[in-house]
Design a protein around this nucleic acid. Structure first.
Lengths: 345, 345
DNA sequence: ATTTAGCACTCGTTAGATCTGAGTGCTAAC
DNA sequence: GTTAGCACTCAGATCTAACGAGTGCTAAAT
């Protein structure tokens, strides 16, 4: 349906526009050394491409810019794989070579590096701990009324919160409770805890602890307050302010507002299935992002996807480079996390 | 030196400008019901105030705007205490009434509420754990090569990181080490740990653990990797984009860039002495913030200042309201933190 | 049948010119 | 000391003209 020359011109226009942010005219394309047609010929093809919806005119006397359909075609069919530059690779390697002791650190840093490499805004949805398994529970009294409950998972994640100590429970009770919990719940996935508690732990508590009601309430408080809201890390939001398409502030206001709502961002970024997701302009569910493209990929821990890493930029985005970087980084991240806790670092 | 009328006019101009973001003219002041002088009279005083450096003219045919010296005088001498509105108070109370189980949550929420109430960008420097005292150490093996080290402080803060387990240490060694650490270091301030380790713990390790070198290295890794970089939470940065002084994007770019560097923000916000800090325009050390004012106050845990809470806005800022809110919130925060861990919630 | 040169036309952008009005500073009268 | 009056200033809005990048179409060339 599209001739080779038309495809070539489409590609040239998109590449040009991505680079310059200005409408691309027939003359500038005809000047390229790899193209041997006159401006007039190219204009004919451009008119055809516009008719088919791949290009748009900002106004009648400007060059052409890609339409969303144009970008989509470009991304789906014309994209050559991007060879990462030495600098890009090195930059990412430092992240994984460094001796890291906290998952959160690695994830946070990924966001920073991603935004630095791409010059867009990066977002990382922190590793979900929902499916990871309980390794150990610790309850550490701080004073007469308060204690800290600590859950450690097999992924090395540490979850903690403060709980109120009922007067009716003394330190031997706490110890008993801790033992029961560890015995019964070790290896259990976090999202199973509640169920297990009700089925197996409640009964044991009743048998072994005097003030059963308090004990039950206490353990529930200690175990089930998991912050299952996912963590979100941001990097380089200010990069967006340097994009010419956002030079007038009204366009960025809502975007920046929404990028402060973790929940919205989560919905925006999460891919429907695992793997690479590319949403161009109107394909984004949220209408504030019609001028943006969002590219994201999931990263995994031990084979299971646990989080998402992605970037937000203008529709005029360096798809090639960004995709290359995100793929590399999400793989690296998956590997690093898995190494950190499975094989030992 | 300044007549009462001049002071009154200064105040009127500042109030007016804070409200409208437009230069204030003599006529509009003379129209106020509480002023009974003609525009001409007011112009005379305005000229005097300008000569003394309290006012400025954007250009010769505009009204006057306050100079930094003007704002400074306003803040130091003309400021009436702000009565918080019901809404404002309620909003803050929800923060402290809610049943909170993590310090971080409270602190994070403070940032959100602060920015919502003020409509400026809020920043909260998270509680320093540096001076808090060690309550308990836990070392939990995840697999043959890796373990999680957990430090709990008397303030209920939980610090954790992953450490590599040397082959030469078996589980009984780990247990021994944990016992030694807890026995010797409980109640010790975190910033003393290193010293104490060298003086008291090293010797004990040598006596009780076979592979002394490994054990020493291991404990150091486990204890001393504290993330003593302070945590920084942000709220409502996008509010700045709605301020008319930042309508042109070049002015916000650098500001937004710098507001992503925790270190810079830290320097910017930290007051020289405890209590309220107000920096107007050029008083800010960082020249990107010459058009901004920063107001911050420290909050404390158990009487000792452990963090800072503040806002960044244009020099044309609602000083009165913001100061009232920040004072209330920092007090509330101090109380809430202290209650949470000292008296029991 | 393709491709290209030529040319009239479109329309956003820029620069200059003019007009308007808010607000000042000064002088002279109250 | 205060105020009315008035000439003056200057940013901002509105208009016009010139410019030029780029198009679409037609007719000639390949």
């Amino acid at each position: 349906m599209l001739t080779d020359r038309q495809l070539y011109i489409l590609q040239a226009i998109i590449d040009g526009y991505i680079h310059s942010a200005e409408p691309v005219g027939s003359r500038s394309i005809s000047k390229r050394k790899d193209i041997h047609y006159s401006p007039a010929t190219i204009r004919n093809d451009m008119a055809d491409l516009e008719e088919m919806g791949f290009l748009e005119k900002p106004h009648s006397s400007a060059g052409r810019i890609p339409s969303e359909k144009g970008y989509r075609h470009y991304v789906d069919h014309l994209l050559l794989p991007h060879r990462l530059s030495k600098k890009e690779i090195e930059n990412m390697e430092t992240l994984f070579l460094k001796d890291v002791s906290q998952v959160e650190q690695v994830v946070k840093q990924s966001a920073t590096i991603l935004s630095e490499l791409t010059s867009y805004a990066s977002i990382v949805l922190g590793p979900e701990i929902f499916e990871s398994k309980l390794k150990q529970v610790q309850i550490i009294p701080l004073n007469v009324h308060t204690a800290v409950a600590i859950l450690v998972t097999d992924t090395g994640h540490v979850e903690n919160h403060t709980v109120t100590l009922p007067d009716s429970l003394d330190s031997s009770d706490i110890e008993k409770i801790t033992n029961i919990l560890n015995e019964k719940l070790e290896g259990e996935a976090l999202f199973h805890l509640q169920e297990k508690m009700e089925k197996e732990v409640a009964g044991l508590l009743k048998r072994h602890v005097k003030s059963y009601q308090d004990a039950l309430y206490f353990t529930e408080e200690a175990l089930l307050q998991n912050s299952n809201q996912e963590k979100v890390f941001y990097g380089g939001k200010s990069n967006l302010l340097f994009q010419p398409e956002f030079k007038d502030i009204e366009k960025v206001r809502t975007i920046f507002e929404l990028l402060e709502e973790d929940h919205t961002v989560h919905k925006l970024l999460k891919p429907e299935q695992d793997g690479l997701m590319i949403r161009i302009g109107q394909e984004n569910t949220n209408e504030a992002f019609v001028d943006c493209s969002i590219i994201s990929a999931s990263y995994s821990f031990n084979g299971k996807p646990v989080g998402t890493i992605g970037i937000v930029g203008p529709t005029r985005m360096e798809y090639r480079r960004v995709i290359g970087i995100i793929e590399h980084l999400s793989n690296g991240l998956s590997e690093a996390l898995t190494n950190l806790y499975i094989k030992g670092s």
